[in-house]
Design a protein around this nucleic acid. Structure first.
Lengths: 303, 303
DNA sequence: ATCGAATAATGAATTAATATCATTTTTTTT
DNA sequence: AAAAAAAATGATATTAATTCATTATTCGAT
């Protein structure tokens, strides 16, 4: 009845990773003929080839490509299932895979993770940042257990809770003419070099909520990976940036940069924590959410 | 290395479905001791029990419950993978699992499916309507291959294409005072019995886009499953309903009901077809999208 | 061109895993 | 108390998987 087994997926992925049956066999602690026989049997039963045999190397067929995709999707779920089951035996031990979709989230996460490590010493925390199908897809696909994101999706099966409110502000250097302004209008940065994280502009609030509605673009746009370099550049008058106010106050003091409100009303933002409803009663996951919420009350809020 | 296998998941699910090891063994064409040994070995290796042994019957432990959830998620993917692989061997044969999230979608689907059956006689079409994690979740989770929905989600890994535009209108009976009105205002149905499909009100456009903004509720609200009964009731003056204009024109003629525009500008709606980007080159899936799009040009549009 | 190294396929033999059979234990029902 | 139902257990049998030894290709270097 059942034809396709975990071992087949394992082999296909190992061959893809290591290039040959022989190499794959080494990594799996099996012999090359074992893998050969195993896949051959699968091919006979299903009536499809997994690889084109071209001389002494293997190239995936269309069916093989597809199987590889299945393998990449299912195998991590098997290993995670095994881990999770062993956790049931070992008490509060666990594995929390956190995904992130925005840069400010990362800074926030660092603050939460420190007390969490103390409270749950046996929980293994992974932080992941790139997802083939987006953060939501990663949650649904069981690649991660928790998502930190500014874009919640209130749909069946997922829970999102706001855990951090902040104001997105413009950051300007110590010599900047806007340094003491109460707020800026879009046209006031039409001549500036705008420094942002390397993200599509439609995912940057300063564009979608501030510049684009006013039909303005900055003179230059410079993408920078790291917050520190970004602040350095702003401090030296190389441009202006948009960051959360708390981040400017906290990290920006030593750079001598100042926050300025974006527009009369400012840009209000929230970060959300999302997880699968089904996981709501996993103790160490619940604890993370609680910690985040407690932190919100004690320290959070736009300041 | 690998402990958890497909067979374990199969057994756990079968026991859950059939109530006992013995019954499960019968259905799997194995003996009761086979299953017993198999799960026992798993339990030894992982250090957790799958079931509480209470006398002669089994009750899932917490770990077991969790394993069952894994089984229900992964096993369909195995069977679907096998089917799909055999399709690679058998040409244009295939399996298209279509999910739907709205009632008008269903009427539309009926029109598309007829020519599709003719063009792809070997493709097996399934239509599913209930999803634990919503339609998007079902797409991400590989429960379905295509989603018909009024709420697209433009995210990585998914493609959504509009395939049908229509106007949502009020349907009134032959004696109704609004029968010849050019359009209605919200307050004009404050005294009516409103008949809708049995869906939360925030998912009904007549509420979210028409009544709620005006702060109006109808005197009564009656949920009805089927379009025919709904139209019957409207025809006999038992209330008014909200349906797509094309549906009123097509199915409503024999009932003598009339469409009336909702508000001065009407309520414009679109239905979208969503699928996984990775599946975009599956011929029989592509063909469905193409057919839907072709139909849109030739017959669709709000009329 | 030829040799040698690398790699996959093959077939037989071996080993290991799995399933069965026969039986026991426990619990529930009558 | 006996019978029936169900799971567990242990030994045996069966089946499946793995290895070993070998062959067949192919690719690269000389």
């Amino acid at each position: 009845m059942a034809i396709l087994e975990r071992i087949h997926l394992t082999i296909i992925r190992a061959v893809d990773q290591h290039g040959s049956l022989t190499a794959a066999a080494d990594h799996l602690n099996l012999t090359q003929p074992a893998l050969s026989h195993c896949i051959r049997k699968l091919e006979d039963q299903l009536g499809v080839s997994v690889w084109h045999r071209e001389g002494r190397n293997l190239r995936l067929t269309q069916a093989g490509e597809w199987l590889l995709a299945v393998a990449n999707r299912l195998l991590p779920q098997f290993t995670h299932a095994e881990e999770r089951l062993q956790q049931f035996a070992q008490g509060e031990r666990g594995h929390l895979r956190i995904g992130m979709e925005c840069h400010p989230c990362y800074q926030w996460l660092l603050k939460i993770v420190a007390p969490y490590f103390d409270a749950w010493p046996k929980v293994d925390v992974d932080v992941r940042q790139k997802f083939q199908f987006g953060g939501i897809g990663a949650l649904f696909g069981h690649e991660i257990d928790m998502l930190v994101t500014p874009d919640p999706l209130f749909k069946t099966g997922l829970c999102f809770e706001p855990v951090f409110d902040y104001e997105q502000v413009l950051v300007v250097g110590p010599q900047h003419r806007l340094r003491c302004a109460e707020f800026v209008e879009p046209q006031q940065i039409a001549d500036e070099t705008l420094i942002t994280y390397p993200v599509p502009t439609d995912r940057l609030d300063i564009y979608s909520q501030f510049l684009i509605p006013a039909g303005i673009s900055p003179r230059h746009h410079k993408p920078i990976e790291t917050t520190d370099i970004m602040l350095q550049m702003v401090a030296h008058g190389r441009g202006v940036a948009a960051l959360p106010r708390w981040m400017v106050e906290e990290y920006g003091a030593k750079f001598g940069v100042s926050p300025v409100r974006l527009g009369r009303d400012g840009i209000a933002k929230q970060i959300f924590l999302g997880y699968r409803e089904a996981d709501a009663d996993i103790d160490y996951l619940r604890a993370f959410v609680d910690l985040a919420r407690a932190y919100r009350v004690s320290e959070g809020q736009a300041r």
